[in-house]
Nucleic acid binder design. Structure first.
Lengths: 155, 155
DNA sequence: CGTAAGTGGATGAGTTGTCAACAATTTCGT
DNA sequence: ACGAAATTGTTGACAACTCATCCACTTACG
């Protein structure tokens, strides 16, 4: 006998709906714009940012995957595609015969340097500017709270 | 000459990062769980919910697409796939020779009725339970605000 | 040592999303 | 009423994600 489902009460449902719709619209728009004005997908963007933010533009595949919280196979495919377009390259790892370094190429650096200002501007237009600094802070805290909650909640 | 990019200040960056990571983790987990325990994708789920929430379980393709804010081609593909699995069917539209009605089949009804309780439970565990009712209300308002802001901002 | 378990990564098949082009109707302007 | 434009929907090609599986190398343990 199943426990009766605990349906969402009206306020909970409104909260969930608003959140979902907002998030979907926001992410959708941002990624389409990014694609349109830089030819990069959101995934390309995060990978390049992650890589180039640490001085040497070089990271182990699995570390990269953990950093952005992806599965390793997803990262591997992604890197393969980006390598095909010359944005990153794989380098052998001397210490660990199995390993590979992923490196941002000069073209990769150029690509984020060109894409970033526009993208940040859109994040500002669509998200940051919608809220006061106070509200933004609140949203940050609530997001963090949900995030921490999920981390406890194994899966 | 380009205007100098208005980078995010540290608080803005934290807010954006927290939000993005939260949202990605949340959506990721929910959709993997939904897939695992009901064999439905998140897309299948919304389509069926949208269809069955209005009495007759029948809607025009474009209306359906607008409701969930998808592109029409995405909806068309989605419906094709769902039709192949017997969850929905296409019906001709008498008033409009171009049009098609999308209808939830009995199997479609059964499918959401089975999937919904578990899914709602997970939404509760991962999201609702992370926050107090007050905080949830706040998040709802902030989401709505961002949503409204985006609607003004044509695209 | 030698072998089993663990780790780092690659790959293939299947599903889903995007974009662009097209076809069929309907509607609107004159 | 007639042609142009808009609406409704489909399709095909292609990119991206997931899952499962596989291979190569490292490490740990007896």
């Amino acid at each position: 006998m199943d426990a009766p489902p605990r349906w969402l009460d009206p306020e909970e449902k409104v909260a969930w709906d608003n959140f979902i719709r907002m998030q979907e619209k926001l992410i959708g728009r941002l990624s389409r714009r990014l694609q349109a004005d830089s030819g990069m997908s959101a995934s390309d963007y995060i990978v390049l940012v992650s890589l180039t933010e640490r001085g040497d533009g070089r990271m182990r595949l699995l570390d990269l995957a953990k950093l952005v919280e992806w599965e390793k196979s997803r990262m591997s495919h992604q890197v393969t595609r980006m390598a095909k377009r010359g944005l990153v390259a794989r380098e052998e790892c001397p210490d660990d015969g199995r390993g590979a370094f992923i490196v941002a190429t000069p073209a990769g650096y150029r690509a984020i340097e060109e894409a970033a200002p526009q993208h940040v501007e859109h994040v500002r237009q669509l998200f940051i500017d919608a809220l006061t600094p106070n509200q933004l802070g609140t949203l940050a805290r609530l997001s963090k709270r949900v995030l921490d909650h999920m981390e406890k909640h194994s899966d």
